[in-house]
Design a protein around this nucleic acid. Structure first.
Lengths: 161, 161
DNA sequence: TAAGATTGAGATTTCAATCTTT
DNA sequence: AAAGATTGAAATCTCAATCTTA
């Protein structure tokens, strides 16, 4: 039979795991419902626009965007299909390597992101600040970031012709 | 313009949110790939079997199981369809209220859960214990549990005829 | 009317296969 | 070969509609 100590430490890890699953499910449920109802964007739509808006010239290689959103190559194609159809993102090809395609934020995309950000950022802050002190939020972020993340190694930028 | 203080506290909440999204995505990716490859179960399959195994007589009303797994009524129907086809779960109806159906763990289901648990629990522990001290795991679990959870109010048990 | 369960249709995402370019 | 991008097929889940029972 397991000792009391090993049983306790086993349940601790399991408790953390279950808490992570539940917290993610309920939080994304709330935030994505709002984002979708008020701005017609999924969380991944929003995150894609956000990453593009922070990149130089508002553009990113599709494969690098996939890495940042934790999507596969085909996942990013399908996500961008929707954003392109909505006129929020455009396509651009690379002269120095014709395999790569860029996703480029359009001005409509930048406007939509700005508008959605006002309410979305407020909701994220509310979600955390209603329940945690500033120190606790920082602590939670730091602990979570120790879990397996993903390296953000972007490929080389496209050389001008 | 925002003050430095409000900007800092804004990014803290956002950092925590992004860390939660990434940690969940990568952790579930790893653990579900293993569970699926070695035991043919998704995370929700596993959690369903686990909840049933802990319930009295190994059975639970379908609607209560849905609540625990954070699935909709139709989601639980589809999940159980698969587990029933695999012979891991059976159906049982309630004599005192013929609207309700129970999901019942079969002995094959109990065996499969036991087998999967050996490696799955070890993986969950490894995931957390390789990166955190015992205190940190406990702290993470406690912080996460402050985020919006969900009440576990099960309905009444079925009266015998 | 409302609760529990199911079904059809649609959204999002992955995997495997394929095409082009390096 | 290997990398980037796309497509067809399949898995998982939600919403809206429906059926039965309370």
């Amino acid at each position: 039979m397991a000792t009391a100590a090993s049983t306790r430490s086993e349940t601790r890890a399991l408790d953390a795991w279950v808490a992570l699953l539940r917290a993610h499910s309920v939080s994304t449920g709330m935030l994505s419902a709002e984002l979708l109802a008020e701005h017609g964007l999924t969380i991944n739509d929003y995150e894609a626009l956000l990453h593009l808006s922070r990149a130089a010239e508002g553009k990113l290689r599709r494969v690098d965007l996939a890495g940042r959103l934790l999507l596969t190559a085909s996942g990013i194609t399908r996500l961008l299909d929707g954003l392109e159809a909505a006129g929020l993102v455009g396509k651009e090809s690379c002269v120095s390597d014709r395999r790569v395609t860029y996703a480029v934020l359009t001005s409509a995309g930048r406007k939509r992101l700005a508008k959605a950000s006002r309410s979305h950022i407020a909701s994220v802050r509310a979600l955390f600040e209603e329940r945690f002190t500033n120190d606790e939020v920082a602590q939670l972020a730091e602990l979570l970031s120790l879990l397996p993340g993903v390296g953000d190694a972007d490929g080389e930028a496209c050389k001008p012709s």
